[in-house]
Design a protein around this nucleic acid. Structure first.
Lengths: 146, 146
DNA sequence: CTCGCTCCCATTGACGCCCATGTGGTCCCA
DNA sequence: TGGGACCACATGGGCGTCAATGGGAGCGAG
C-alpha cells in the first residue's frame, strides 16, 4: 500500500531527533520522495509533511483564489511563510526544530498521523482531542435529530 | 457463504496475538482479500476490518467534500489517521497493538463480530452490552405501547 | 574556539516466521 | 452403535531480523 495511514507516537531524543515510523518511510521510498516539504496545517495545530508536489498542490489551490483576497494572502503566508524543507538522517529521523515545537506544542513525544498523500506531526494529546472532536462531529452529522 | 457472520471470542496470547476465527479467514480467502484495512469505528468502541474497498468507500465520501473544508480534514483524521493496515501471520493471527487496545479496551480476549462485508474486534463485555442495548432499543421501537 | 548539526555505531526490545502441542469434533469401520 | 484414527483449529514458545532509541565523534560555520 502506498498511502500514509494510521498513527503512531515516537519519542524525541535529547538531540531533538525523532524516528519517522517505518511504514511511513517505506511509503516515501515507494513514491520516490527524497525532498520533504513541511508546512503548518491550515486547520489543525500540526505540521504536514509530504513531497514537493504537496507544495505545488497548495500553490495551485492558491492560484484559484483572487490574488488580492485576504484568503489568498493568508494561504500564501501559511504555504510559503509557514513552509520548510526537511531532511531525514541516515536512520530515518528528522529534527524537531523550534519552528515545529512552537506551532504544535510538541515537547518530548510526536504523534505521526497518516493523511493518505502526506503525514502530519502532532502533539500526542492534541491529536487525541482533535480526533475525538472529529468523531463527535461525525456522529452529530449522521444523526442530526436527537 | 461469503459473508462475515456470527461472533466468537478468542484469547490474546502473551505476545499479543489472537487467532482470527477460521470461518472469517475462509471468507477473506473467498473474497481474495490479502491486504487488511482496519479503522476505528465511528460509533462503537470497536475496530472494523475489511479489504481495501472498505477504505475506498470512505475515501469516495471524502472526495465529495471540499478538500480544504474543516469537515474534510476531520473526516480524513478519522479515515486515514484512524485507519491501519494489518497483516495476518502464517497461522492466521493478527497483532493486538496498542492502537487497538487503547480504542477498544481489549486486554486478554477479543470478540470477533461479523458485519457482512467486514468484521469487528470488540472487548467481549463491551460487545455484550452493546448488543443488549441494541436489542432493547429494537423492542422499544417494535412495541412502542406497553 | 565553540556550538550545533550530521554521520556512525551500539543496544534493546518488538515483531515476523517457524515449529510444536492440545483439544474438540468428525468420519470411518468393525 | 461404540471405538479409534484423523483432522482442523486455537494456542504456545523459540529464534532471527529489523526498527526505535541513545551516545560518541567528526565537521563546518559563526
Amino acid at each position: 500500500m502506498n498511502r500514509f495511514l494510521s498513527h503512531a507516537t515516537n519519542r524525541v531524543d535529547a538531540k531533538g531527533r525523532v524516528s519517522v515510523p517505518a511504514p511511513f518511510r517505506s511509503v516515501l521510498q515507494e513514491r520516490q520522495i527524497q525532498e520533504l516539504y513541511g508546512f503548518q496545517d491550515f486547520v489543525f495545530p500540526a505540521i504536514s509533511i509530504g513531497g514537493p508536489e504537496l507544495m505545488e498542490r497548495f500553490e495551485r489551490q492558491l492560484g484559484q483564489l483572487d490574488a488580492f483576497s485576504p484568503e489568498a494572502h493568508q494561504m500564501s503566508l501559511l504555504v510559503h511563510g509557514g513552509g520548510v524543507f526537511m531532511k531525514l538522517d541516515p536512520e530515518g529521523r528528522l529534527m524537531v526544530t523550534d519552528f515545529i515545537r512552537a506551532f504544535t506544542g510538541i515537547t518530548t513525544e510526536v504523534t505521526f498521523v497518516g493523511r493518505a498523500d502526506y503525514f502530519q506531526l502532532w502533539q500526542p494529546r492534541a491529536f487525541q482531542d482533535a480526533q475525538q472532536a472529529a468523531r463527535l462531529a461525525h456522529q452529530r452529522r449522521s444523526a442530526p435529530a436527537t
